[in-house]
Design a protein around this nucleic acid. Sequence first.
DNA 1: TTAGGTGCAAAACCTTTGCCATCCC
DNA 2: GGGATGGCAAAGGTTTTGCACCTAA
Lengths: 136, 136
Amino acid sequence: MLGLTTIMNRRRTKQREAILAVLGNASDHPTADQTYEEVRKQLPRISKGTVYRGLRVLEEDGVVKELSLPGTVSRFDATVRPHYHFRCDRCGRVFDLDQPVIEELDARVAKRTGYKVTHHELEFRGLCRECQWRSL
Amino acid sequence: MLGLTTIMNRRRTKQREAILAVLGNASDHPTADQTYEEVRKQLPRISKGTVYRGLRVLEEDGVVKELSLPGTVSRFDATVRPHYHFRCDRCGRVFDLDQPVIEELDARVAKRTGYKVTHHELEFRGLCRECQWRSL
DNA sequence: TTAGGTGCAAAACCTTTGCCATCCC
DNA sequence: GGGATGGCAAAGGTTTTGCACCTAA
């Protein structure tokens, strides 16, 4: 689960450049599929596989970031009361934190942006206790 | 995208109770599939569909919460510099915020938990400007 | 020349759905 | 009885992968 730095010579290709250009120009944050559709306007013969691979590569190189969470599975929580989480980047487990929720953040963002803010989700990342041993 | 409250008489069934029990006892936050495997120890004939439906129902009723993000598609961001996001619950778009990142949170959590905290992801939720009109 | 990349299609995954039998209220 | 559910299997949608053919370095 840890993003190990791959030792590999990356080649500069028009496909990956097109992907990066699309992401750079987009103000919202395109999904892989939206990126594919956009790139296709420049490179009609590009395939979905290439876009997915390209995004993955760009992310490994730190050029692009995947939002929210890696992987596609949802996780469920029986605790409904608002609280924050910690996700271990190695084992993937998610733990509850009893850190107090900072309510005033919502109002601050609302005032600055004009969005109606109902709540926020805060997730800390790193290594849990068990995985800290195993990691070195 | 907004969770409308469904008007429906919910029945109390052993399947849904088993699902809830599993979620209640788990300290990490099981995925739907992990929940299924766990429930199956009690109810070997339960189906995946029932677990998925059960989780959905429990979530609608506010008994259970789905973590992190609704939907399964990943979104990509060409801005690597740490920053927060706002996600509109109606149109699903994700916007960057220029709210300053609160660095000290990481250290605070690390001290309290013993986890090694590398960073955090903060996402505000609500309605964007456009969707506030449309919503009433 | 050659390791890394691309296209294409199939496979793998996760989640939702349709259908019909079943179970409660 | 009749609406709410469950089991099963098929369908849907997203992402990954195997493989033969390219191509940048």
